[in-house]
Design a protein around this nucleic acid. Structure first.
Lengths: 145, 145
DNA sequence: GCCATTACTTACATTTTTGTATGTACCATA
DNA sequence: TATGGTACATACAAAAATGTAAGTAATGGC
């Protein structure tokens, strides 16, 4: 997403692919950190700082950008509390929640693919990266998400 | 994918996210044209030229690049026939086929999302872009794929 | 010999995405 | 008065993805 320059073939193709429901969906979830954010929010509302802490390696700028796009795309809602220091909470929308099961399927597929092509299992243990412990809806996920 | 420079934070993060099965999966299917290629192949083996014709707006270079990555990732196989002019056929692998149902779900979700946020229905009709008629496995798809 | 066909390759340019570094507002507390 | 915490914004730089234009190899048909 970000800036859109009306003329280039590149941005034309992006728009063109928006017409297909499948590639449209990919555009909504395709950012580098978006699925991780989404999975973090499956356990419920989270503050900006909580997300930042739990999503290893993401920078504040990237987190902000991805959250803003997800908000603009209707995947999450953003609630600002008039406090000092500021508090901002992010929550999955209904349509956002509907992505969870697809993510679960993708996660499973990814693990199967990894196992098949490399004969190896997920490299990360629970301790290497932040966990995802408090998650009733998709408790099978066992690595970063 | 493409070129990888070992040192940058950018490529480090790419590798880092490879450790998570979910973001790993996203990397495999995340190219701009990959899902379209995949859906085209659901109806069976296709030649390079057939894919090129059916996937509107893709250039030969992009088609080549995406196909090569998908082959390297084990999503498709590539068979070259020693003929002149050359003939090259692409076929989904088993693990590649396992993505189809996920794509179907994503497609459905995309349509629902589009309808919800904009109150509009898929912009493309069957005639605007190449169709996807000969597809037993996922016959619900109705736009580009 | 010349052209058409197919599936590419290569060099290059442009656009988009991602990351770095620094600054800001607000108010409570020390 | 100075400091700390939170959730950003901004200017800039680097890297990656995408697109353009041209060329290539092999061979059969004219």
């Amino acid at each position: 997403m970000a800036k859109i320059k009306e003329n280039s073939t590149n941005s034309f193709n992006r728009k063109f692919l928006t017409d297909c429901d499948l590639t449209y969906a990919l555009q909504l979830m395709g950012g580098r950190w978006k699925l991780l954010i989404l999975m973090r929010l499956t356990s419920g509302t989270q503050r900006f700082g909580e997300l930042k802490k739990k999503i290893t390696n993401i920078t504040e700028r990237m987190l902000t950008l991805q959250l803003r796009e997800m908000e603009a795309d209707g995947l999450i809602t953003r609630q600002v509390f008039a406090e000092v220091p500021p508090r901002v909470e992010y929550t999955l929308t209904e349509i956002g929640k509907e992505l969870i099961s697809i993510c679960d399927a993708l996660h499973t597929w990814g693990a199967r693919h990894r196992f098949q092509v490399a004969g190896e299992v997920s490299a990360l243990s629970h301790d290497d990266v932040a966990e995802f412990s408090d998650s009733p809806p998709s408790a099978q996920l066992n690595d970063m998400v």
